[in-house]
Design a protein around this nucleic acid. Structure first.
Length: 260
DNA sequence: ATGGTCGTTTAACGA
């Protein structure tokens, strides 16, 4: 089973990119972030034409996440538990049924958090604490799961072309990295880093200042796997060539292959 | 040191 996460930076602007990607690369499950659309205006045809069931959790103007699946998902839920006053659309879960087992798919768009200090950074850290609580609950349930999406976290110096440029940024501050490590310390496996220890692999390049041409990237899109899912991982790769195509998102897809 | 680019939505805001 092939599962991909992709921050598309707006479904309206990325319709053709997503349609082509689904047709040619055919993930069994696609986890999308920054759809930037309310549910009613999401062009469902982009999923349905390619043979996918579509579940969106959107809001007006920004944020928004979605799950696409070739087979029906069970028990789809929207929103990250822990704060009923949080109106930002950043989290969706659904269960995919494989031939030899099921996996709970948690799709997330973690807050950016800049500028620091300020309410946006406070919100990011609070959101990460809620994500940790959700991970604890899923681990306690013993249901195999993965959490994937745009974490807006640069885990360590290997994950930036210019690590020194990010030391005061919400994506790399010690408190941010500590919160990310708390997730790993629960027993979750960071899929890409486990398979590829080397530096120089990125999932985001800013539109500004020729970042792609200079390979001035950062790795902020991640798969975290529960122990049972980590045991079934056969590959994890970054589809970096997508960044060089026509009208690209500023992020590229990250892929997880499971023996499932 | 500064400005640089996109997307959504139409004057900024978010990234």
């Amino acid at each position: 089973m092939k599962i991909a996460t992709f921050n598309i930076n707006g479904i309206k602007a990325r319709y053709d990119t997503v349609a082509t990607w689904l047709r040619d690369d055919a993930p069994d499950v696609a986890i999308l972030q920054e759809i930037k659309s309310v549910d009613e205006n999401f062009p469902r045809q982009v999923a349905e034409d390619a043979g996918y069931e579509l579940h969106t959790h959107g809001q007006k103007g920004f944020n928004g996440v979605a799950l696409l699946s070739k087979t029906p998902l069970e028990d789809v839920t929207r929103g990250l538990p822990g704060d009923d006053s949080d109106e930002q659309a950043r989290y969706i879960e659904g269960t995919v049924i494989g031939e030899t087992g099921s996996v709970r798919i948690c799709g997330l768009y973690l807050p950016n958090g800049n500028p620091v200090p300020g309410p946006k950074y406070d919100y990011k850290l609070a959101w990460m604490a809620r994500l940790e609580a959700r991970a604890r609950a899923l681990l306690a349930s013993e249901e195999p799961f993965l959490m994937a999406g745009d974490y807006n976290v640069i885990p360590d110096a290997r994950d930036a072309a210019r690590p020194d440029a990010w030391t005061k940024d919400a994506l790399a501050l010690p408190q941010t990295r500590a919160a990310f490590r708390r997730l790993l310390n629960l027993g979750l496996t960071e899929a890409f880093r486990t398979r590829t220890p080397a530096p120089g692999h990125y999932s985001f390049w800013d539109y500004q200042a020729g970042a792609w041409d200079r390979n001035d990237g950062i790795r902020i899109d991640h798969f975290l796997l529960s122990p049972a899912v980590a045991d079934r991982m056969t590959d994890c790769t970054i589809q970096s060539d997508m960044r060089g195509r026509e009208k690209p998102s500023d992020h590229v897809p990250v892929w997880l292959d499971l023996d499932l």
